[in-house]
Every structure is written in C-alpha cells, then in structure tokens.
Amino acid sequence: MKKNILLTTVAAVVLLFGMNSCGNKEENNTSEATTVAPAANPSAGGGAASVKDDDSQPNIVKVASGSKDHTTLVAAVKAAELVDVLAQSGPYTVFAPTNAAFDLLPKGTVEGLLKPEKKADLQNILQYHVTTSMYSESMFRDGLKLGMANGGSVVISKKDGKLMVNDANIVGHVAASNGIIYIIDKVLLPTQ
C-alpha cells in the first residue's frame, strides 16, 4: 500500500513535469491531427523529418535546408507541410527552383502562395516538382515524361548536352540519401 502511494506520487510529479516540457507540442499536434487538410502529412514536428540521425547521408530536406540558394523553396515546403513527406524513404527526384527562379514570378506571387488559405495551391505547385523514383542524369532521355506527385506530368528534354524540364534549365544536381535534387532556374507551373 505504501508502495502504491509512492508510485502514484512519483507518477504525478513526472507526469506534470513531462507535460510542462512537451505541453506546447501536444497542443499543436492535437489541433493539427484533428484538421482535415486536403493533402500531405499533418504531423509537423513528429514525422520523418524529426528523426534524429547524424550518421546517414543527409536526406532531401536536410540538403535543401543547407542551401543558401533555396531558402524560398524551403520556406514554401514548410508552409505546404511537405517536410515530412520529403524526409520519407521515397526515393524522390525533386526539381528545386532557386531563389532567383522564384523571383522571376510576378511580384507578390510567392507571398500570396505562402498564405495559409493558399496551402492547397502551394501544395499543388510544389508536388509538381516531385516525382517518385531516383532519376539519375543518364536515365533522362529526350522526350521522357515523368508523372509528378500532384498528378500532372513534366517532360524532359535533352539536346546538345542541355538538359531541361519543361521550360526550366537543369543547372546542377545534388545527391541525397532518399533521392536526387536537380537545381532548376524556373518554377514549374502545373497546367490545369
């Protein structure tokens, strides 16, 4: 009986302590888990992107986050709640527009898309930059059609050593643990 009381007391103390330390997260996640969003992973902070692992090759999220030229893309991926998706096993091929590529869009476009009410549009655009399978450069042939995560498709062109996806130039690539990132100079816009 004494033991039981002791256990209960300790339990209560630890519980309270535990809740203080992660109370915020719990609230955030509860609200997100109960929201019916149109797509993607609602578990910000608890999904694949939060796996602590400094030994493996960096995944797409970590590689992109480390690039100074892709801060707009990274912000957009966060706003669209695609961070955990891109940290999953994939494998993915991601076409990653640079900050300069986003700057080519009409003024105010990016800011507009980052608004919460535009999340579905943003997701549609970003998912148009992602496909499953890891396409190495040698797998790209002229005219190859790739089905993208949003349901649309892009076309690869390969002429005179110049590689393009739709009307964007592919200017380089970076390997990641769960796929490959092709850096592009234009944002790909899905056709409706």
């Binding site: 809740m19 997260k25 996640n29 939060s50």
Partner: peptide, 22 residues
C-alpha cells in the same frame, strides 16, 4: 493503469514529444 500511463507519457516527452501528438 497509473504505471502504464506513466511509461507512455515519459517516453513520449523524452523523445521529442511525438507520441503525445496522436
């Protein structure tokens, strides 16, 4: 149920709080 619950929550909080999420 006290001790069982205790384990769940302590583990949950120790580890980025993710278990408490859902």
């Amino acid at each position: 149920l006290g001790s069982l619950l205790l384990t769940t929550i302590v583990v949950g909080c120790k580890h980025s709080g993710k278990n408490t999420a859902v």
